[in-house]
Design a protein around this nucleic acid. Sequence first.
DNA 1: GCATAAAATGGGAACGTTACCATCGTAGTC
DNA 2: GACTACGATGGTAACGTTCCCATTTTATGC
Lengths: 353, 353
Amino acid sequence: MSERATRPPTLNEVADVAGASKTSVSRYFGGERARLSPALQARIAAAASQLGFSPNLMARGLKGGHSKLIGMLVADIRNPFSVAVMHSVEQACRRHGYSLMLCNTDNDPAQERAHLDLLSAYRVEGLVINPAGSSQPALDALAAQRIPTVLLDRRLDHALADVVGLDNALAIDMALDHLEAQGYAQVFYLSEPVAQVSSREQRLARFHDGSRQRCLKEEVYHHSPDNAEAPLHAALDAFMQRAGPAPKAVLCANGNMTLAALRAFQALAIRPGDTGLMGIDELDWCALVDPGITTLAQPTKAIGHTAVDCLVKRLTNPTSATTDIQHPPTLLPRGSTQPPSPSRPFSSASLGH
Amino acid sequence: MSERATRPPTLNEVADVAGASKTSVSRYFGGERARLSPALQARIAAAASQLGFSPNLMARGLKGGHSKLIGMLVADIRNPFSVAVMHSVEQACRRHGYSLMLCNTDNDPAQERAHLDLLSAYRVEGLVINPAGSSQPALDALAAQRIPTVLLDRRLDHALADVVGLDNALAIDMALDHLEAQGYAQVFYLSEPVAQVSSREQRLARFHDGSRQRCLKEEVYHHSPDNAEAPLHAALDAFMQRAGPAPKAVLCANGNMTLAALRAFQALAIRPGDTGLMGIDELDWCALVDPGITTLAQPTKAIGHTAVDCLVKRLTNPTSATTDIQHPPTLLPRGSTQPPSPSRPFSSASLGH
DNA sequence: GCATAAAATGGGAACGTTACCATCGTAGTC
DNA sequence: GACTACGATGGTAACGTTCCCATTTTATGC
């Protein structure tokens, strides 16, 4: 209908066409329709749709201070766990009437800081952060602004922010319980270097405690996905040789480690199941790869929703105490923790799930 | 240093502290530092850092009309291909000084329309869209605003937008060449229902032409990931029975189909390689699953970069003709297209790559 | 029927920034 | 040494909203 929509129509123009005041039009679009007479509402609606008007959220954000924006910082956008949480965060934001502004830091503290500045420049009302390795830059920026923040997965000691993530202790307990129940008695724990990441610390600590409690023979190996895999293969091989005859298993602290472990299994020609293999984080291929890889799926949907819930709660009530919410994982048992039964030494273990 | 940073400092306050005019401060932060004397620059820098000032991008966007935002609409955020492109788009945006506002439509045209409205309300300067199934709502909104748009992967007939994606004809040619070279002579083509999606149309059309050219026996099956897989399994089984003795292969039109095909192989106890299997889209697990799945990797990085390049080009020169840029895929040969050699009928085919 | 309240509407003044034009020195040119 | 030109600054008016207050209209009570 519009001849040449060079510049989007403004509230003022709608007011003119509708024969109303800008205030009324503002009310119409600002959720105060109830205060307007049906006649006026109709006129405004007609004028707006004729002109194709939509309120300029920049202007709105400027005046009222409500950007209706939530910023999210993801350490690695290509990590399926991050993506899943992201998806859920976005849904939750929309449900609360917010939009998501997403930034990926590629695990680079410099980018993390830059993006944080950017988000605060856009005056986001809240922040969901999956912190990259180094926490310090983030902290500074957070302290400077007074922006409510939720930390995903990783706790930052000095930050006054809510934390939402996996119940790491429970996850390790479930893993050890499952391995024990399946008859494995010696466990090789594969984790990235702890590097002061709280979730890694918690998992590792619980692994030690839990192994001792259950009288499992334990061994820990730290592997960085950036490094060559040869040392890992050697370490696993050594474990296989050295360890006693009791059934052995490998427990992976996250998805990357599960991937590395699987490659190690292939390199050493170990069949998952004969030696147990399970990991935290569920991935597409875990059900596909030969006997199926047993995993503990993180409740990504709950994590994302909860994070946003915390945020909006703090947005309405900024003074409430910070919380630390831990969600339980789900065990997905598959063939990789099915030891060969004596009767059928090389059974085609059930595909689980 | 600031006592109680209740509200972020404004340009005006910086001007006061620095003993300068707001114009000068604006120039300092607006990239016109060169016009300011070194003395003034120093005073402003000091005042700004003391106050912890950062320009309010909402206000800037309002005044100048430059939101410095680019919007991206993704049909399915959980699709690895989309994520990879997203990652690359975000990098490219940042390099050009833009920020990315990301929306996920979950393949729902209603959400697509809602998000489009939202993005235009934030006055994004450009749009990168991976259209969901139905194109109509998107079109309307696009036409109304005058926002430069780049379409990913799918062409929309009536839209005056640049298109960036895979060279579908080349991809199919490469696939058929590879299959033929490996000795496969009968090809089962597995695709989602075409449903007017341009990329699917192009791939299918070229498959027909290419098969005829190469004298390959062809068969086409359409499978929707939403539906049960039993019919697919039956169809594949029938193909296996009916087809002659010449080596057979399955060609999958995208990652979802590769997944479905692999499950069908498992259900029918077909070993990939004995019957060839390859697909468009490279996924994490393709190298992991038994003999390795041969794929054509999409150049996601190039696609994302090119999309943003197109956008900024059109931003500076809105009248240039629309382009359609097609990037070539990369063949990753693996065991699944390695037919058993007569001498070693069940060789552990090379893992490729 | 008049005072009064309540509802419905309108008119500015902000919000924090940039764009435009005006002002001021200060040096260069004849 | 006055005129020009240019580099460095400052002032003011927008940008499109919302908020606060003033005004008009309509319903309510006696």
